[in-house]
Amino acid sequence: MRNVKKQLSRFINYIKHPTYNKEKVHKFLYGSKEKEGFLKQFAVYALLICIGFVYLYPLLYMLSNSFMTLDDLLDSSINWIPSTFNLDNYVQAGNSMEFWSTLGDTVLVCGIPTIINVIICSIVGYGFARFDFPLKKVLMGLLIFTFVLPSQITMMPLYVMYNDYGLIGDIWSFILPAIFGQGLNAQIFILIFYQFYKMVPKVLIEAAQIDGAGYIKSYFRIALPSAKPAMLTVFLFSMVWYWNESYLTEMFVTGLTKAEESGWTTLMVKLQQFNANYSSMQAQQNTGVQINNNESIQMAGTMLSILPLLIAYFLLQRQFVESIDRTGITGE
């Protein structure tokens, strides 16, 4: 207690007769050789926080708007915080998107090609990393070339081809390319695995072969277990990219011309067609109170379609963010 009193009196004294050291203040503000100055640090933090806010701005906007009732939207005095905690928009949007069944579809449409992607890309990456064979350089060049090539250019012939085999409007139009290493962004994944297997010491695999393991066994026993981080990365990113892909999904899996026949759809495709779907649902129901489509409902729909991704990101953000460091996308 006395100690506190002592310090307090010293503090009061200091305020009454300020005896600051000019050098010290300068050092504090501008920093020295060892320590960065307060001003610089303050500026850096301020900038980072500002940019962070800009990054989060659309998300916050979406979140706050999705809870607003129509009155709140029209009321100019309400900017950010809705007057009531209103979940109606979510119910409306969810109904119009048929949320649960679509979610199930989405998980299948994204999940199956993703798992195939992980398996095939790991095999192909191992082939490129471990072995030398003629034309290897040419094939690697083609790998990068197909990555640069936009998917639009091969879209029409593929559509015709799938149509001939009756694959349009079926999940097989995503699975089949994935089996042959041509899934969505498979080139990046092959390169990730390539980088990873390059880091596995060749001696290990050779030792296994001397001990009597064949090519396949040494791949499964030695190479594959050491590539777990790469597999996680590829799984996460493949999942996210398939989830976010609406262009090709709408074309192949949902089917461009026969969307009614096809049972497959994803949340992103539904979101793409949100406005049209919403009005048709309203026309069909025709009972009870009609709530017209408005901004809040659209925002709620958007929120619903990215909600699973957001949850996954908050649970696994470490793996997402660190994966780029670990897998050596950067090591090229």
Binding site: Y55, L59, N244, I306, L310, A312
Partner: peptide
């Protein structure tokens, strides 16, 4: 944004 910034969104 890498996770959520897709075309429709």
């Amino acid at each position: 944004p890498v996770i959520i910034a897709s075309g429709p969104v």
